[in-house]
Design a binder for these strands. Sequence first.
DNA 1: CTGAAAGCGCTAACAA
DNA 2: TTGTTAGCGCTTTCAG
Lengths: 345, 345
Amino acid sequence: MFETYTIKDIAKALGLSTSTVSRALNGSHEIGAETKRLVLEYAEKINYRPNPIALSLKEQRSHSIGVVVCEVANNYFSQAINGIESIAYDRGYHVIITQTHESFDREKANVEHLISRHVDGLLVSLSAETTDLSQYKYLHNKGFPIVFFDRVAPDITTHKVTVDNYKGSFDATEMLINKGFKRIAHLTNSYNLLISQDRLKGYQAALEKHGLPFREDYMKHCNHGGMNHDEVELIIKELLDLPERPDALFVTADRLTINCLQILKKLGMRVPEDIAIAGFTNSDSAELFDPPLTTVRQPAFQIGQIATERLINLIESKYPVTEFITEQLDTELLVRSSSNKLSVK
Amino acid sequence: MFETYTIKDIAKALGLSTSTVSRALNGSHEIGAETKRLVLEYAEKINYRPNPIALSLKEQRSHSIGVVVCEVANNYFSQAINGIESIAYDRGYHVIITQTHESFDREKANVEHLISRHVDGLLVSLSAETTDLSQYKYLHNKGFPIVFFDRVAPDITTHKVTVDNYKGSFDATEMLINKGFKRIAHLTNSYNLLISQDRLKGYQAALEKHGLPFREDYMKHCNHGGMNHDEVELIIKELLDLPERPDALFVTADRLTINCLQILKKLGMRVPEDIAIAGFTNSDSAELFDPPLTTVRQPAFQIGQIATERLINLIESKYPVTEFITEQLDTELLVRSSSNKLSVK
DNA sequence: CTGAAAGCGCTAACAA
DNA sequence: TTGTTAGCGCTTTCAG
């Protein structure tokens, strides 16, 4: 398996030319049945594997796709990558994963790296810092296949796969309101991210529908997706120190949600007695939490699959694609006791 | 960035030969200072990037390393991958990740795939099903760089990075014994895995040291690393139905630990009142569980880093390496209330 | 110090 | 139906 036979070895062994062997191997029709059989048989015998690097050089493509995400160690993204991998594997593509750690510079370097590696396409979820999309615009204008998922680019017209963040956020907020919460604070990721904006809108719409005021001081965002513990702690403290302390917290980022819980616990706040909480997260263990955590869950695996499917279709399309789909899947609201309104307080 | 200039373009523009350009670019000494300056300047200006595929073809290496793990969506592995990526990135390597989903066939196919892609080395954590190591032996004997981490191969002599599973397991078991538990059941991954065996030994040694009997009926293993929920549920029920029901559960696999908790909860068992629990997991949220979960935590990030460091050193070594290191890092025992012995029962 | 030419493994246009 | 040849982008002898 490891000794690397070439087409030349086969040609020599069989007294043929390399092109004949190549044709036999590639099922060309302009070849004698007998010769073909001979070649295939021998190739099978020595377990011949074409050199993908040579192929790439020739075909100017690499049969690999580049993935840009902020963190692998994040429930949402590890599940999405699982979905990406499942489709890519089936369709004969390699997956090269890069992490931005929410840094624009790192993101830029990653994309350059992937491009210089001649990946055939890009699957991108933007970093929290990213506002400059010129890199992607440039590539996209050149016809380079890019599909965004989750944190999609606002003004680039290509395939995009997300959930309906507005609705997911609206539903969760409305649920909190229906439970009887009136002072619902909102913690979200960087405003740069479209998903943060959509989630904010959903939250606002739910407040408005139920005649609750939108209060700036109940609205906080973390620029590092909750990766920076100190930043989150500071924000939580600010909220808790408000004269009219919020009675519920609605958090819309995976790591952020988990970190909030940790910090509330550290600060000795009881959930939901002192403050209720609901949040976006794909953690598999939310039901095990104390109290069980109300979550908005995204079909991350499926999102990864769909994005990859679309990307590979773009890559393999014979003609330039001009029709692009923005797909929004549904979130799932899992109501658990972290968002219970306790009758007596 | 995307239009792909070649060495030829530079040569043409500057009226030089491609070989001269190549030399200038590669800092060769047999070149005129002025020519060199000219070339470098121009290359910089057009933002020339060498084609890595052409380089790979020439050098017969790809500057990429293949990773084989069971699942990405697993706390331990996603953290390890993070470590792998951090080092690989710094040293100019790409990381290609493949998942086995605990299937030997899939593992075999992944390795073949990676090899045919001419990865320069392999970072492997075996699947639970794998007993046939011939593939790795073959490669290793050919001098192909392989480093095992976590689930290492028993009889292949190469670099290996794990934790001290024996000790981690011993300490956790002893802690349970010291708390007053006498009937400690042990749930582990497939016996095929060396880590399972080591963890079992640690458990047994702790029992023995404290004069507790080792009971076969307290000893269970799951062949799918806890991925198969029904399998785990069946096992838990068996344990709970024993005439002498265990008073504590010691679980030694990441997903398995989480799943056990879920199942115990589903079955209405109180932890630690009805049964205490401690387990290996790298979940970041174990302290948030109800009750907070006692865990054995592994330095997954660091393990990934060390393994990658070693692998790249192997790859870049000028001479065949014959001295291999098996490194065992320390686990961290985080005692929380899931393993509390309650005075009254 | 610089250029011409070969070759890494493969495909495809062109000849035969 | 098969072989010859050129070329993908690059490095590296070998000449000059």
